[in-house]
């Protein structure tokens, strides 16, 4: 456990994943973009390309 004391020093770099999770506006970007692209844009594209009945 003494190892933890040394690894919790202030100069230890923050891991990338923790930096992502600590950035609310990056998360906001992810949370808007993913559903907009995969759900809305993809879905709307499918609807507008439905052919007219022959």
């Amino acid at each position: 456990m003494s190892q933890n004391e040394t690894t919790d020093a202030d100069d230890e770099p923050i891991p990338v994943m923790q930096q992502i999770l600590d950035n609310p506006f990056l998360l906001l970007f992810i949370g808007i973009t993913v559903p907009t692209v995969f759900y809305i844009v993809w879905g709307v594209m499918e609807i507008v390309t439905i052919p007219v009945a022959k």
Binding site: D8, E12, I14, P15, M17, Q18
Partner: peptide, 8 residues
């Protein structure tokens, strides 16, 4: 509590 918690 830990500044770097990702490595726990």
């Amino acid at each position: 509590a830990r500044r770097v918690w990702w490595k726990e």
